[in-house]
């Protein structure tokens, strides 16, 4: 599977990664090589094999609907790069 530059750009945009042209070219080559290697799994016949999303046999792990204390608002915002009126602040969202 050889990736095109457009595909690399599309993936980077989905993942919101700002990449330099050099990086894009590098990832195009590297990801292509890795995917080519990964393509070996296509040889396996897995028609009748169920997927394993998790190895655990667990089911119905739930908690009771009980309220526990929240963080003090200072702790919530302590790591925030930009704060206004006890809220996180970002540039206005256009589109």
């Amino acid at each position: 599977m050889k990736l095109s530059l457009e595909q690399v750009e599309h993936i980077a945009e989905l993942a919101k990664l700002g990449l330099t042209d050099e990086e894009k070219e590098g990832y195009r080559a590297q990801l292509s090589a890795i995917l080519e290697y990964a393509d070996m799994i296509q040889q396996l016949d897995t028609e009748a094999i169920p997927p394993t999303a998790t190895v655990l046999p667990l089911r119905n792990v739930m908690r009771d609907d009980e309220v526990t204390p929240s963080l003090p608002v200072e702790d919530v915002l302590a790591n925030a790069p930009d704060v206004e009126d006890n809220c996180f602040r970002v540039k206005a969202i256009l589109g």
Partner: peptide, 28 residues
């Protein structure tokens, strides 16, 4: 209309609460 949030124990009754007072590491 649960008492706590979907995946953490913070109170789900937030309508009248000041900003960011019903927040824990999970829902943050």
């Amino acid at each position: 209309l649960t008492r706590s949030k979907m995946f953490c124990g913070c109170s789900a009754d937030y309508a009248a609460a000041p900003p960011n007072t019903h927040v824990c590491p999970v829902c943050l």
